[in-house]
């Protein structure tokens, strides 16, 4: 599914240079559920951003779906991301001005999918996520768990092959957190590859493999 080799990311300012990722290499196969763990500032989110084509690495190679994507320009990264990668964030990142239906529909609009098809797919997903009755509500009118379910629906509506989840339960109580993890497990069982950054041992236990990061390096895999 994806392969990274000798990947580094260095943030430079006028005064200091921070190494976020230091020469890391690993491979994730299609259908895997991988958790990335480590203390704050170890480079987990940076790694996720590079894997999600939101950011470029400073050096090294990144191969996604048999294509080298590490050196792609932003325009091409956007194009490649569409339909291939879905994101789930800790803070949900829903658009306040759009209602639930419109938030979920968003990726399909940019993929230029017909309105009737969009409606069908969004309705199905909202039913599956148990939030169909909230379709016309705005994010601020929803609970945290409901918001994250909307975010998951948005992440998977384009049927991506890879889902990147950045602490998806970080802002949720245990009941809602469990619900989210159950959904991710189901999606993985349906064949979606999932890479999840988490601090929670409990959540990591849902994954097939755990990569431990420390100071930008992989210190163990289990």
């Amino acid at each position: 599914m994806l392969k990274i080799k000798n990947l580094s990311k260095i943030f430079r300012t006028e005064e200091i240079e921070t190494v976020a990722l230091n020469d890391i290499s690993f491979e994730i196969k299609e259908g895997e559920f991988v958790a990335v763990m480590g203390p704050s500032g170890c480079g987990k989110s940076t790694l996720l951003n590079i894997l999600g084509l939101l950011d470029n690495s400073s050096s090294g190679t990144y191969e996604l779906l048999d294509k080298e994507v590490g050196s792609l320009k932003e325009k091409n990264r956007t194009q490649y991301r569409k339909g291939n990668i879905g994101f789930i964030f800790q803070s949900f990142n829903l658009i306040d001005e759009l209602d639930v239906f419109e938030n979920v529909e968003l990726p399909l609009i940019y993929m230029k999918i017909k309105a009737s098809e969009r409606k069908k797919r969004v309705d199905e997903l909202l039913k599956r996520m148990n939030i169909a009755h909230r379709a016309k509500h705005f994010p601020q009118q929803l609970s945290g768990g409901q918001q994250q379910r909307v975010a998951i629906a948005r992440a998977i509506v384009a049927k991506p092959k890879l889902i990147l989840a950045d602490e998806p339960t970080g802002n949720l109580d245990s009941k809602n957190g469990k619900e989210v993890m159950t959904i991710l497990t189901e999606l993985n069982k349906e064949g979606t590859t999932i890479i999840m950054v988490t601090h929670s041992e409990h959540d990591a236990a849902y994954s097939h493999r755990i990569i431990h990061l420390f100071d930008g390096k992989i210190i163990s895999e289990e």
Partner: peptide, 16 residues
């Protein structure tokens, strides 16, 4: 800016 970022993550191009 966050909304713009989310849209971009979800595939929006510059002109959009």
């Amino acid at each position: 800016s966050a909304e713009i970022a989310i849209r971009k993550i979800n595939g929006a191009k510059i002109y959009q």
